[in-house]
Design a protein around this nucleic acid. Structure first.
Lengths: 295, 295
DNA sequence: GCGGCGTGTGATAAAAACTCACACATGCCC
DNA sequence: GGGCATGTGTGAGTTTTTATCACACGCCGC
């Protein structure tokens, strides 16, 4: 006989958080789920044990005698498990994943998502090296590189597309309020924000919509897309950038897309793994795929 | 900060069993899953930690240093959790569920499934009282009664059907080998096994197939369906019993249904809960529904 | 050389978990 | 006292996870 029948462990985990907060809702926030999920898991644990663990009052819950006992006895055990897990990952040589990525993609897409990776894989330490050079000219060795191009990779490395992309025109809502844009032509009244290394984007876009000779009122040039985005948020003018770089600025209303129908396809973002990489890099690549699929 | 990020707990549970056995296959047997499930969960845990826990040799696995450490530190914690869970269920008043059911259904359907209930709900102790009387004439109080009839329940109790059923004709393969049955008429050469309290079943069946005057070579009478089934397994003759009572005898070839097309519909099995029952009885009723749905 | 044995894995089915949207009960505040 | 905010419970539907199945592989022993 092993350890005797264990209770449902994830339900127990949620119970412990709920017991600590004495609140399903606050536990739900900590666990990144809805309060309904916590309610159901606690109920499942109670049914497994055949004992009520919480007393449900109105708008609040409190622990029963059995709930208090269970909390007191299992919480240290969970701490012990967490500590053991940390101990094991710590003692390992912790070979990090060396990631080579361009500045704007790093700042606007990768870094905001890295905390998720660290939480999922605490034993793998990502090292991010931003670099503008092509992967085959990289000054430092890397395990995985991320670029938009399908070419320009060291021999033996095959680029794997993982994130579809497109160019969008964006501006701050305050700017549009002052001078609304009904049709693309009206852009002639505005300032365009240009990325130095991608100054053909506006020309491509103008050609794409059939107005190659459109002349803006002014042009401001910056050396990275993420700086252009900051300038756009601050109402300096119109930006044309890849959808993948938008982050929360559109969702939270700091930027809007005044001409949503006019989009320019863009090569997908790709990653390429150096030959002879370890399992950690593979895990990171799969995580990239998943993150991209989440949109 | 809570306990720090916990590892996936069900994966850890499988890891511990696998580590104890030093075998994924043996762990799978203990956990009632396939070896593939164990393999995947262990892999998931390794990826979460970013550390290999097993060394895969051919046809066997052994623990790495990190695996040994993790095992040594988390196994006691799991024991502690299991003990705490047992302690909490034990201290509760353990109100059992009093189940009232007829003998044959108890022996052939309910009792073989009860271990599953006990495993799922260690805090709820089922008490089974077999009784032939109608639920409203039961000599002892019950929380839930199981009968085929939709009527004959105490006032205030509504019967809930939970298991469709039908009558089947069955016999031991050895008997059929000696005297094969090509059509229903050939039953005239055989012995029919009759349940005293259900002696109309054969007549109903004969009427159903249009041979009301069919006369068997002999009749043997018993007082319970489960005894008739034992007699059939032992090659004494042909039985007509409810599908719900078959258990594993058909699946494992101890009985066969020589005339599979000729089935007689039967009222579904129903349960009725006494008024004012507790949550434990509700849990049992839901478990009945689930078990019936599993077929 | 061939069947037996234990593990890994792609495709797919089954089960579990979660979310959403709403219900309910209460306290609080204007 | 009515309207609103708060925290929990729950049915229906969806997503995510988990397990299964079926097969591959590598070696062992006969």
């Amino acid at each position: 006989m092993p350890a005797g029948s264990l209770p449902p462990l994830n339900a127990l985990r949620m119970f412990l958080v709920a017991a600590r907060h004495l609140s399903f809702s606050r536990a739900a926030v900590e666990l990144n789920v809805t309060h309904g999920a916590v309610s159901r898991q606690v109920r499942a644990l109670e049914e497994h044990l055949g004992v009520a663990l919480f007393e449900r009052q109105v708008r609040q819950v409190s622990l029963t005698v059995e709930g208090r006992q269970l909390y007191a006895e299992t919480q240290p055990a969970m701490e012990q498990i967490a500590a053991a897990a940390r101990g094991v990952t710590g003692r390992a040589p912790t070979r990090g994943v060396r990631i080579n990525s361009r500045t704007s993609f790093s700042v606007r897409w990768l870094i905001p998502r890295l905390p998720d990776f660290v939480a999922r894989h605490p034993g793998i330490a990502p090292q991010l090296i931003t670099s503008l050079a092509a992967p085959d000219k990289a000054p430092e060795p890397f395990d995985i590189a991320i670029r938009r191009d399908l070419g320009g990779w060291p021999s033996g490395v095959k680029a794997q597309p993982f994130l579809e992309d497109e160019l969008l025109v964006l501006a701050a809502p305050s700017l549009l309020k002052k001078k609304p844009i009904a049709e693309p032509k009206a852009l002639a009244q505005h300032t365009l924000l240009v990325v130095k290394t991608r100054n053909q984007d506006w020309d491509d876009w103008k050609a794409h919509i059939g107005l190659p000779r459109l002349r803006p009122a002014a042009r401001l040039q910056f050396d990275h897309s993420h700086i252009v985005l900051q300038a756009a948020v601050d109402g300096l003018g119109f930006a044309i950038v890849a959808r993948s770089l938008l982050g929360a600025d559109v969702a939270q209303g700091r930027l809007v897309c005044p001409l949503p129908g006019l989009r320019l396809p863009l090569a997908p973002m790709c990653y390429g793994c150096a030959p002879g990489i370890g399992r950690e890099t593979l895990v990171f690549a799969e995580w990239l795929d998943r993150q991209a699929a989440l949109g």
